Simulated scan of single mutants.
Amino acid sequence: MSDRIDVHNHIIPPRYRARLDELGLTAGGLPSPDWSEDLALAAMDRHQIATAIVSVSTPGVHFGDDMRARHLAREVNEFAAELTERHPGRFGFFATLTLPDVEGSIAEAAYALDELGADGVILLANIGGTYLGDPAFEPLLTELDRRGTTVFVHPSKLPGPSAEGIPPYIADFLLDTTRTAVSLVRSGALGRHPNLDFILSHGGGFVPFAAYRLAMTSTFDADRTVDEFLGDFRRFHVDIAQASSPTALPTVLEFFGSDHVLFGSDWPHASDKGVAYFRTLYDELGLDSALRAGIDHKNASRLLRRNATTAHPATALS
C-alpha cells in the first residue's frame, strides 16, 4: 500500500449536489462529476493514495442566506466526519465554513475541529470578490491562528464576468489563488498569524513564477523590502494538483522549498484521466526518494492536526 496523502481531494455529498443542481451552480464552470464512497476508494487505489483529505470544492455553501449556509456546512462536515469514521486511515477532511458569515464560520470551525476531528478548514480564495486578507475576515483568521489551524485555500470564480470561451477552471482559478496569496501577504495577515499554515491549490497559482515581480511591485506603496515580501510568499505550502509537469514542479520546488510541497490530485473534478495524466508526469520526473517521500506524505503529516492514517502505519501523522 502506498503511503501517499492527497490533500486536494473532493467530496460531493448527495444533498449538497442537490442544492447545487437546484440553484444551477457549477464548480467554476465545471459540472459536478460523479462521486460516491466506492468511486472515491477505487480512484484512491488506482492512484496509489493511502489517505485522502477531502473537502467540498467551490462554490462552497453560502448562497446568500447565513442560516441556510450554516445548516448546509454542518451537514457537509458531518458527512465528511462519518466518511472518515467508516474508513479509518483512508480519509480525513478539511471543514467547510460559511464565509462571508464570519460569526457562523468561527462557530463551525470550533465544532468541526473540536467535535468532528477535522484536519483543518477549507476557505475559498475569494468570497463575493473579497479576498482573504481583507479586514472583514480578520476575526476568523485570529481564531484559526489561536487554534494553530491548517487552512486549505481553494480557488473560486473570479469577481466579474468570465472571458468568452474560457471557463473559469481553465485559467481564472490560477489567478484567483494568486490574488488571495497577494492579499494575505500585502495585508500583513501572515505576520499577524504565525500559527496558521496555508496550503494553496495547484502549485500556488502564478505565485512561484511571478513571485519576484509580485514582491518588487508591492514595495511601491509599502514600507517593506522585496526580501520581506518574498519571505512571506515562501511561507505558503502548496499542493501539486495539475502542477506536477516537468516545467511547473521544478519552479514550485525551487521557490517554496521541498518541505512546503504536498501531493494533491483534485479528484474527481480533475477527472480520472486528468489525475492519471499528471500523476504519470510526476512519476516520470525521477525525483529522488527523499524528495518524493516529503511530497507524498511527510510534509502533509506535519500539517494535519489529527491522525488520519491509522490504517497505514507508514503514514502515521506526528
Rank of each mutant, 00 (worst) to 15 (best):
A50T: 08
G64I: 13
S57Q: 07
D45T: 12
R74P: 02
V56G: 07
D45F: 04
D65H: 10
A42C: 01
A52C: 04
L72D: 09
G60P: 04
S57K: 06
Q48F: 06
A42F: 07
Q48V: 01
S55G: 09
E75A: 07
D65P: 05
D45P: 08
D45S: 14
I49P: 01
M44Q: 15
M67D: 14
R70E: 13
V61S: 03
H62P: 03
V54W: 07
D66Y: 08
D66S: 11
S57T: 15
Q48H: 14
H71F: 08
G60W: 00
Q48R: 15
A52F: 07
A40Q: 15
P59M: 06
F63T: 00
P59D: 02
E75C: 05
A69L: 07
Q48K: 14
H62S: 00
I53L: 15
A50G: 13
A69K: 03
V61Q: 01
S57E: 07
T58Q: 02
G64F: 11
Q48N: 13
A52K: 03
A73T: 11
D65L: 06
D66E: 12
H47Y: 09
R46S: 12
T58Y: 09
A43F: 06
S57C: 11
A73S: 12
E75M: 05
A73Y: 10
L72A: 09
P59H: 06
F63M: 01
T58S: 10
D66A: 13
R68F: 04
T51D: 11
R46N: 12
H47I: 02
G60E: 06
R70S: 09
A69D: 03
V56S: 04
A52Y: 04
A42E: 15
D45A: 14
H47A: 09
G64H: 11
L41Q: 13
E75K: 02
M44A: 07
G60R: 08
G60V: 00
H71D: 14
R68L: 14
I49A: 06
T58P: 01
V61W: 07
A69I: 04
R68M: 11
I53K: 01
A50Q: 13
V61Y: 04
H47T: 02
D65N: 13
P59K: 05
R70V: 12
A42Q: 13
S57N: 14
M67G: 09
R46T: 14
A42D: 15
A40T: 14
A40K: 10
V76H: 06
G64L: 10
F63C: 01
Q48Y: 07
S55F: 08
A40F: 06
V54F: 08
F63R: 01
A73V: 06
D66C: 07
D66V: 04
A42I: 11
T51N: 14
V76I: 04
D65K: 05
M44L: 00
R74M: 10
A69C: 08
A50S: 15
N77R: 09
R46P: 03
A52E: 04
M67A: 15
H71C: 02
A69H: 04
